[in-house]
Each structure stands twice: as C-alpha cells, then as structure tokens.
Write a protein that binds this DNA or RNA. Structure first.
Lengths: 345, 345
DNA sequence: TTGTATGCGTTATCAT
DNA sequence: ATGATAACGCATACAA
C-alpha cells in the first residue's frame, strides 16, 4: 500500500470510518473501537483516531449501524390528524422524550384516511422502526392496528379498541370531577354543564365525573340535564341564554371545552351577569389562545396532553426493551386557575 | 414451543429477501429483480417470487436499500417550535408533499434552543437525510445553518439570513395590500390598522402593504398611524376604544392578526357599532377557531402556510435532484371572506 | 493492543 | 433467464 494512497474521501460523500482509520493510520476495527469507547485500544491511538474523526467532521452512518445492530434507532409517530389542535401536544411530548435520547422520530400523517394509513404503516415498517406511537384525532377508541406488526405499539390520546394493546389517555371522568370540585370549593351550588358533541365519548365521561361529584354534595345539575350539542362558541352562547331563563339562581357553569366556555362568557356578559362574582365559569382543554384572551381569563381543566405524549414514549421505550404492557392507562388532568372562577364569600 | 425444522426465517426478525428467494426456489439476485420489476426475469418466476413475498408479508429493508443507493429516502424537518400554531400547517404541507411519494420525514423539534438544534442536526445528518427543511417559529429571518452541511436545505416560514440559502415565505406585504384592497372594494374610506408586536418584521410588512394600497386611493391611515403593541385580544379591544375616540367616522379596521381582530370585534360590539354595517373588520392568519367562532365570523387573510410547506418540499425535492435554488421566494396570501366585511351600499 | 474477516439486507455487475 | 459476487458502512468475534 503506497503512501499517497490516502485518498481524501470521495467527493460529495460524507467521510466514512475507513477515511478516519486511514487518516489515523489504523484499521477500521481499531477506529471503531476507539470512537465507541471500547477497551483494548491504546490511549495514544484513541486520541489519534478521535482527532482524525474531528478533523474530518466524521459522523457515523446510522443506517449502517442500524443494519448490524438490528435496530434502526427510530420510532414511528403515526397521527390521524396533524391539523387538529389536540394531537399536537401529544406529538411534541413524544418527540421530546425520544429526541433527548438517541432515538429519532419518523412522522407520518394519515389524515384519517385508511388507505393513507396503510401506506404510511408499510413505509414505517419498511424503515424498520423499533416501535410505533399512534396518535388519534379524537379521544374515542379507534381500531387496533393488530398484534402482528412485529414491533411494539402504544396508542396515545385515542385508545385502541383492543384491550390487548397498550393505550395512554387523559382521564376525562376525573377531569369532569375536578372541574365541579373546584366550583363547589368556590361555594357554588347551582351548577350547569354545557358540553359538545354527544357522539364523543369524552363528552359523556366528563359529564359523568361532574354529576358524580355533584351527587356527593347532594346536588344535581342546574338546568336538569347535561346540555349537549356542538363544540362551538355559538352553542356556548345559545345554551347560556336558555340556562338563564330556566335557572335564575345559576351561579356556575362547567363548559365541556374552552370554545364553549368562551361562548358562555360572552352570553353572560351580555346578560349583565358579572363573572366570576355572580356566575363562575370553568372550561376544558386549556387552549391558551382562547383561555387567556377571554374576559375574564378562563379557569380551565388542562388534559396534560404533552405529558401524555411523554408517557407514551416512556411506555414504548419499555416495550422496546422487552417490558411490554397492555390495557388503557388514564392520566390525570390539571386545574388551571385564572380569573373566571373565585370563591363566593 | 415446537421446533420447526423448516422455519424460513429467524424468530422475531422480519423476513428478508433471502427468505423470499429460498421459498420461491430462486437466488436472491433473481428475487430482487423480480420484485423491482427489472427485466431478464421469466414471467413464471416473477409470479412465484411475488407470491412468496406476499406469503411472507415481505417488506424490503429500507436501511439496506439506502446503503447501496447512497440515499436514505428521508428528509429532516427541523422546527424551532412545535407548540406554536404557525409552524404546524407548514409542517403538514411538507409531510403531505413528501409522504405521498416514497420519502419519509424525520421530525426534530429544537425548541428554539441552539444546543438542542445542534444536537438534532447532528442526529439528522447521521441518519443521512437527503435534505432538510427548517421551519421557524416566527416569520423573521433566522441564522443560516451554513452551506457545508452536505445536503440541500430549504427554509420555510422564517427565511435564512444568508441569501445564498433558499427560503420560502408568505408575502406579508401583499397580504396587507390584499386586506386593504378588500376593504376599499367594500367602499370603506376611513380605515385603521391595529397590529401586534413591532419587533416582528411581519408587522411592518403587512402595514407597508396596507399603507401602499391606501396611498393608491389617495388615502391615509385612520388614526394617523399604525397602532403597534401586542398580538392579543386585549390590545385589540384597547386600541379600538382609542380609535373610536379619535375617529368617529371610522368605517373599517384591518387587524394584524385574528386575535387582535377578535378584540376589535368585541370592543366594537360593546360600543354599539354594528359589524359589518357600520364598521368592517378584517383579520390576518385565518386561525379557524378564532375566525369562525366570532360574532360575526371573521373575514381574514390566510397566509396559506400549508402551501408554503408543500412548496418547500417541492423545492427541496428539486435540490435533491441537483437543481438547487437560492434566495427568498414569497408566496401570496388568500382572502377568506366571512361576515365581518361587506359592501357599504 | 491491533488487524483480519464476517455479516447485516439489498442492488448491480458480471458470468453462466 | 438465472445465479454468484462485490459493494454500501459499520461492529464484532477471533487471530495475531
């Protein structure tokens, strides 16, 4: 091997371990050991290799590493709705939990289209992801991807309909309970619940938690029943007008979403009711732009979605290590106090 | 667990081309050609291989393919703020444009932290992404990643400060112009502009477009000047109160964001002004939850962010094919008409 | 301590 | 038309 054989790496292509090795004057095996802090490498040699790597700005080819390790070091994030507001924090939590380690995240947006989902699933599997997180668009159960994918899967936000799978979701029942609990602690007794689409399981869960907590105080819902309709400001306004007719003594409203809460707030203001002095209002979601812009700023229940994503990532990491889990795990919501609720003194 | 002597592939691991080949009774070379629709393969053989692949649910290892092709078939999506609302549609547009082809997207959220950004950049480069899309959190120029990354980069939403780089952004000047143009077409003459944080370049760009269009009609801004402050509903309300004092003849407001527009709307309503009969209001962003929930629903300028992401993906694809570009490309905004504006008859 | 050789799964180049 | 074989870049068991 002649001396001027030390060809600088092929034009354009990133330097390889071979380039580093030849620059340091060692074999690729030694170079590999040196860079990976394996033993059986002389201190001086290690130093030489390290310098060569730095000089070449060497970065190991993760694809090649993945081939030998039989692990790609990637996870797939399969979402059904990237445009929606709710999948986002989950996604961020997951990305955060993984990105800080040495896992990378492959993103795929299925857009709630079954064909696209299958397409993306094949693509992710073909890339040999070590695991999969599936984030739904709605909190309702969704069809399982199946058990024979060859990699562990964790469902986040929207649980799988197969109890064999592992899912992490927000505890809507506890959330509803928490909301009413807060209102009760504020001394309210005539509490109504205005919520959204009755086809959402979450609507009923939140309502159930609310009614349960009410019952513990010997109370029932003001207005006589849960008011379902749509997740909109318009419905919040409409429902409130109805409510003020039926229940003149109304002193609190639990809204099933922050959008609805905004409508409630506006209608209350328009009717000359002071918030929170006369009527307290609490929302659900902690959708910042809505909750902080309102008059007054909105007290609300935060479903802690980012945490959900983080937990999903943790569970998936465990499953990848071989410690798989199953069933649906519910995680608590958080009360965020702003100015639309206050003690009745 | 019974020992199956004919076990085609190692337990747990996905089937390989070798498994398919041996099942079809051919060499891996032939199997490869058959599955990739190469010529020099007998029709019958091709069929046998295909059946074997289907039976084994074979999916080629993209990592291995990447090794030989010297292309990973992935692009990196480096965002500085996954929580923000504006990077999201860009991201979705990009994912969409790529996902429909055979490119996969590696997501990395730097959280506006330089250290994290470097970390993620190294990780993406290590995964041998074929290209990079950098999505900023704010529309202002950001530091370039540099020219020596070895892969093409396209900056979206927030342009790079190096003109050598390629950036795609929304045309804020044209957006401002479009807003005022619409108001003028509605017959308005006394038009004010309430906008947000003056440290954002976008504020000034939108204002400039507005003033230019006004000047073409021989008009100037009602209130005498652009009203800068913050991107909040509260500022929208406050500014409107000031405005109603100063300009009793006010017949239109161009708000620099939908949040501000919401505040404007509320203050107008409170002052007894009818919208759009007496005063027309137009926003900016087309932030659905804000624009559709207001009273009345908000006419607004849509910066077409999803399109921006799509274009960025297209440009990156071109660059990967060798046709690189440079400079900042601006893309038009779109007028979305709802009920807060209408002709003055 | 260092180097040689093998394999990871696939594609492409050559023989046959 | 089909098959053996050499890459691709890296890690490791084994030999020196």
């Amino acid at each position: 091997m002649s001396v001027d054989e030390v060809a600088p790496h092929r034009r354009g292509r990133p330097p390889t371990l071979k380039d580093v090795a030849s620059m340091a004057g060692v074999s690729i095996a030694t170079a590999s050991k040196a860079l990976n802090n394996r033993q059986h490498v002389g201190a001086a040699t290690r130093q030489r290799v390290q310098s060569a790597a730095d000089a070449l700005n060497f970065s190991p080819n993760a694809l090649a590493q993945g081939m030998v390790a039989q692990r790609s070091g990637t996870v797939g994030l399969l979402t059904s709705d990237l445009v929606g507001r709710f999948s986002m924090p989950v996604l961020r939590g997951a990305e955060d939990a993984f990105g800080s380690e040495k896992m990378s995240v492959l993103l795929a947006d299925a857009r709630d289209d079954h064909i696209r989902q299958q397409h993306h699933l094949r693509a992710l599997l073909s890339r040999r992801v070590d695991g999969l997180i599936v984030v739904g668009a709605q909190p309702d159960p969704r069809p399982s991807l199946g058990q024979d994918l060859g990699v562990p899967v964790v469902y986040a936000y929207a649980p799988s309909d197969d109890p064999q799978d592992m899912s992490v979701v927000a505890d809507d029942v506890a959330g509803g309970r928490l909301a009413v609990d807060h209102l009760i602690r504020c001394g309210r007794r005539t509490i109504a619940h205005v919520t959204g689409d009755p086809t959402y399981g979450a609507s009923h869960d939140r309502a159930r938690g609310a009614v349960e907590r009410l019952a513990e105080e010997g109370l029932t819902l003001a207005g006589g029943e849960v008011m379902y309709d749509s997740w909109s400001e318009a419905w919040g306004r409409g429902a409130t007008r109805l409510l003020l007719d039926r229940e003149p003594a109304l002193d609190a409203v639990f809204a099933g979403s922050d959008q609805i809460a905004r409508g409630v707030l506006d209608a209350l203001l328009e009717a000359g009711k002071r918030v929170p002095e006369e009527v307290a209002v609490i929302g659900f979601d902690n959708w910042e732009v809505l909750a902080t812009g309102s008059r007054p700023p909105l007290t609300t229940i935060d479903p802690a979605l980012e945490n959900l994503g983080r937990v999903a990532a943790l569970r998936l990491a465990s499953a990848i290590e071989g410690r798989a889990g199953h069933g649906v795990e519910s995680y608590p919501c958080r009360l965020v106090t702003r100015s639309s609720t206050a003690p009745l003194h």
